[in-house]
């Protein structure tokens, strides 16, 4: 019996549980997204009635949404802030994580442990002092005030430090023998090798920056909207247009999804960049 089935068929057969399990997980995961997308095309009343089929109210929802809200400006603000945070954060945190691991010393372990403490500070506690700090620097209301506190996060440093443990030291030594300077090794060898980690880090950082709500709404002057602030305003009135709300929420979810789709190829390719 066993000899009849080819090796290849056996391998495919072995993957069946994978398919079943992953399919169930996918369907469960995707259902609320489906609801959101469908609701964006329905009227407020239909959304409240949990209608699960697409309707014909998309254009109307869009008109209502843009009539009272400057969606374009909120999108732009959110986008510029999130991209700036992502780029700066990846640079600053990856070089720090690299420094911690590659030039490992006891002193650095101590510093890392201290920096980790910062991750555990609930944000609500530091908000008022941070607000005062930026006001004293005359940066209240500026986009920089939103960006700067989000650049260096212990979590990202830790992510890069942990990932660097798999960065082959032979490669490092070889590069040094080739006469590359330390920063050169980081830029030319480490960065391409760790593509998978960068891709994951970029996705996470962008997502957090994109959804950040508390801090922007405190440090930006009222009236400066980012997308999450706009969405919270949609539910602040007496009457909520649920169709329009779901459309806005859908718009707000798309960029992270796109970023993930674009970057996830790097997750897979990450390994091929490694020099063995």
């Amino acid at each position: 019996m066993i000899s009849v089935i080819s090796d290849k068929a056996k391998r495919i057969w072995r993957l069946v549980p994978n398919y079943v399990f992953l399919s169930i997980a996918s369907v469960v995961s995707i259902f609320p997204l489906y609801f959101m997308a469908v609701s964006a095309t329905n009227t407020s009343q239909e959304v409240l009635g949990s209608k699960l089929l697409p309707g014909g109210n998309l254009a109307e929802n869009w008109r209502n949404l843009v009539a009272n809200n400057d969606v374009g400006r909120a999108l732009l603000a959110s986008f510029v802030i999130a991209v700036a945070i992502t780029v700066l954060s990846l640079l600053v945190c990856s070089i720090a994580g690299y420094g911690f691991e590659i030039y490992h010393s006891k002193g650095k372990d101590v510093v890392m442990a201290i920096l980790l403490l910062a991750m555990m500070i609930p944000f609500a506690a530091t908000m008022i002092p941070l607000f005062q700090l930026f006001r004293n620097m005359h940066m209240y209301g500026s986009w920089f005030a939103v960006i700067i506190p989000a650049i260096s996060t212990p979590f990202m440093i830790l992510l890069f430090r942990q990932s660097s443990r798999n960065f082959p030291h032979e490669v490092l030594e070889a590069a040094r023998l080739d006469g590359l300077r330390e920063l050169g090794i980081f830029v030319r060898i480490y960065m391409p090798t760790m593509r998978a980690t960068y891709a994951a880090a970029a996705t996470i950082t962008f997502m957090n920056a994109w959804n950040n709500f508390m801090w922007p709404r405190v440090i930006l002057k009222p009236g400066t909207q980012t997308l999450p602030i706009l969405i919270s305003n949609l539910t602040a009135g007496y009457v909520t247009d649920y169709g329009g709300l779901m459309l806005a929420v859908l718009l707000a979810s798309l960029p992270t999804v796109v970023i993930f789709l674009v970057l996830q190829r790097s997750f897979a390719e990450g390994i091929t960049g490694a020099i063995k």
Binding site: S26, S29, I30, P32, M36, S39, M207, N211, F260
Partner: peptide
Amino acid sequence: AIFLPCAISLVS
């Protein structure tokens, strides 16, 4: 599909 949930807005 499995990653998507954390990208979805809290509201929906």
